[in-house]
Amino acid sequence: MTWLAIFLIVVGLFFLVVGSIGILRFPDVFSRAHALSLTDSLGAVFVLAGLAVYEGFTFNFLRIVVVLLLIYLMNPVISHATLRAAYRSGLRPTGEKDK
């Protein structure tokens, strides 16, 4: 069980590191949001799943799952709101071909 937890946490850390590289490398705010959604919906969730497995099947498992669901519900809302504000105030992605 501990090894499964370590495996899940390491996978999560991999996605977190890749997302951070992405947020440094991508050229504009719209592409950076993709890197952010990579860190949120895969990295953080894998680390939290690893912690939940490490805790075992107790009430703490359920508590961590509640935080995990909260992340899954909230982070899309935040990045959508930020990008909508960017779009409505006239920012457009670089190299866009509108179709």
Binding site: G19, I23, V29, R32, A33, L36, T39, D40, A44, I71, N75, I78, S79, T82, L83, A85, A86, L91
Partner: peptide, 12 residues
């Protein structure tokens, strides 16, 4: 907007 997204990443 980059700053707002960065803050969001920090809080996650």
């Amino acid at each position: 907007y980059d700053r707002v997204l960065g803050l969001n990443g920090i809080s996650t």
